[in-house]
Design a binder for these strands. Structure first.
Length: 475
RNA sequence: GUGGCCAUAGCUCAGUUGGUUAGAGCAUCGGUUUGUGGUACCGAGGGUCGUGGGUUCGAGCCCCAUUGGCCACCCCA
């Protein structure tokens, strides 16, 4: 017996029913992308390693899947074969040369690379969407995979905040269609930069951001402890706590709250904040968000809630302006199902400066998990074949083949049971299992009269009917 | 990279203080007289109990190691 086959950790197989469901998600997202004027591109699964490194922070870089070279180090340096220290590491005759390629970690960095490479063919602002798998050498757990699909939409070459508004509307559109209640959290890295500047730690913005990101998880005590461990003084920590507390519900919903939009109240509070208003970049971030929120409120969203959250950080290093994160309000998955933000200089690294971009990324696999858990698929998602020809032998089958072709030409998904000798029960079970809505039963009587037996598999009712009428009926 | 839990049929699991030939449900396939599925009844196939070692007269069960999985931390879609 052969060994039981398996697939690598953190990867999944998708069977037909699952694929139909996943395609429903992809189709929904794609439709929204197209409706807002985004055009598709694809990039290779692998990139040059140097394209990817240094873009995702220290933790991110560790999770990049490196592709080992096919060249054998021992062929180039045969004397290495005798090196004992290598032998203890590699007990075989093949030592790969240094890896210089890697699997893509996300779709944003390859996109930036693409834009720089194709800058002369692109009309800016460039709106592209991209739906492809990405790979991360992470430890799998709930909602976390080593291979998963991202669905990205990005605008590059436009500073306008209308893009931020539009992306928010797209998130709303997608999750409204999918029937998933969500909260869209929005923050701005400039606010975080300003905060870091004010407390005298401008170079430690990332440290502050990743610590305060855990506010709702480990509370103020935990956050303060982490900040302290990272070398922040008590004075700095106190100053930081002050600004985060300023936007808490307890403060803004207190006496004097006049029912105005919470997000705008929070931002106004920050704009007027004694200590922090002195930072230019801080105020810039606040003003940007005020503009974004005002427009969103004016236009209104269909089902999503938007929320300004000053503790939202996001780990990716390249974000410089607005940052987004979307979570489902129902179900047990607590991690984000969509994220994004503005990056002012991602193309600069590849030699094309002053090209600001902003984008969002839907995590298709997590959305799939949420939809599965909440069972949010419409009935129409399961049906594929609409009509099955059931026959009793070779003669009947031959009689049906031209009819089948006719039905297919009319655009009706249909098939015939291939094994002419199969018993009727077998053929009916097949239809039942595939959730085929109608079967046509063809035997001697039907062939003689041309009146075929059409059975509705849901109601169980059947009627004698000519093929033309069947086509008319099912079209 | 760190920690916790788990591993028996394709799937979900049972399996007594260690004792003959390891069970059930679901799924699959076949049958209940050869033109009718989803419900019923009968039957069949399918397991070196994750792998390797140890203790024992005897191990699915106890011990050690190893691999894999799930969950949490870190970080992220």
């Amino acid at each position: 017996m052969a060994q039981k086959p398996s697939i690598p950790k953190g990867t999944r197989d998708f069977s037909p029913q699952e694929m139909v469901r996943r395609n429903y998600i992809f189709d929904t997202i794609k439709l929204v992308f197209q409706r807002y004027g985004y055009l598709p591109i694809e990039t290779p699964a692998m990139e040059n390693l140097e394209t990817l490194t240094g873009k995702y922070g220290d933790e991110g870089d560790k999770l990049i899947y490196k592709i080992r070279s096919n060249k054998n180090l021992l062929e180039k340096y045969p004397t290495l074969r005798d090196c004992n220290c290598l032998k203890t590491v590699y007990n075989y005759d093949w030592i790969p040369m240094a890896s210089d390629k890697a699997l893509r970690y996300d779709l944003t960095v390859p996109f930036a690379r693409y834009v720089v490479q194709h800058q002369n063919e692109i009309t800016f602002p460039f709106k592209r969407y991209q739906i492809q798998p990405v790979w991360r050498a992470d430890n799998p757990q709930k909602g976390r995979y080593r291979e998963f699909f991202q669905c990205d939409a990005d605008v590059i070459g436009s500073n306008s905040l209308i893009n931020e508004v539009e992306l928010t509307q797209m998130i709303d559109d997608v999750f409204t269609t999918l029937n998933v209640p969500v909260v869209i959290k929005i923050n701005n890295r400039k606010i975080l930069s300003g905060i870091a500047e004010i407390v005298g730690a401008a170079d430690k913005m990332i440290d502050i951001a990743t610590a305060i990101d855990k506010y709702d998880k480990i509370g103020d005590v935990g956050v303060n402890k982490e900040l302290s461990e990272k070398g922040f003084s008590n004075e700095q920590i106190e100053k930081l706590e002050q600004v985060f507390l300023a936007t808490s519900d307890r403060i803004i919903l207190g006496p004097g709250y006049d029912g105005k939009d919470k997000n705008l109240v929070r931002l106004e509070l920050l704009r007027e904040h004694q200590e922090y208003r002195s930072s230019e970049i801080f105020l810039e971030g606040v003003k940007e968000l005020e503009a974004v929120f005002k427009t969103i409120i004016d236009l209104g969203l269909t089902s999503a809630n938007v929320e300004f959250d000053i503790t939202l950080a996001r780990g990716l290093n390249y974000y410089t302006g607005a940052i987004f994160e979307v979570k489902a309000n129902k179900g047990t998955l607590t991690s984000s199902i969509c994220g994004g933000g503005r990056y002012d200089d991602l193309t600069g690294i590849f030699g094309l400066p002053n090209m600001s971009g902003v984008g969002i990324s839907f995590g298709a696999d997590r959305i799939y998990d949420v939809l599965n858990e909440l069972d949010l698929y419409p009935d129409t998602v399961s049906a594929s074949t609409k009509l099955l020809f059931v026959t009793f032998g070779k003669d009947e089958q031959n009689y049906c083949l031209p009819l089948l072709a006719k039905v297919r030409k009319a655009g009706i998904n249909s098939e015939i049971y291939p094994d002419a000798n199969a018993k009727m029960k077998k053929q009916m079970s097949y239809a039942d299992d595939k959730k085929i809505s109608f079967v046509v039963i063809v035997g001697g009587d039907e062939m003689a009269s041309g009146e075929l037996t059409l059975k509705n598999m849901t109601s169980g009712k059947q009627e004698k009917i000519k093929i033309e009428k069947i086509i008319e009926k099912l079209k």
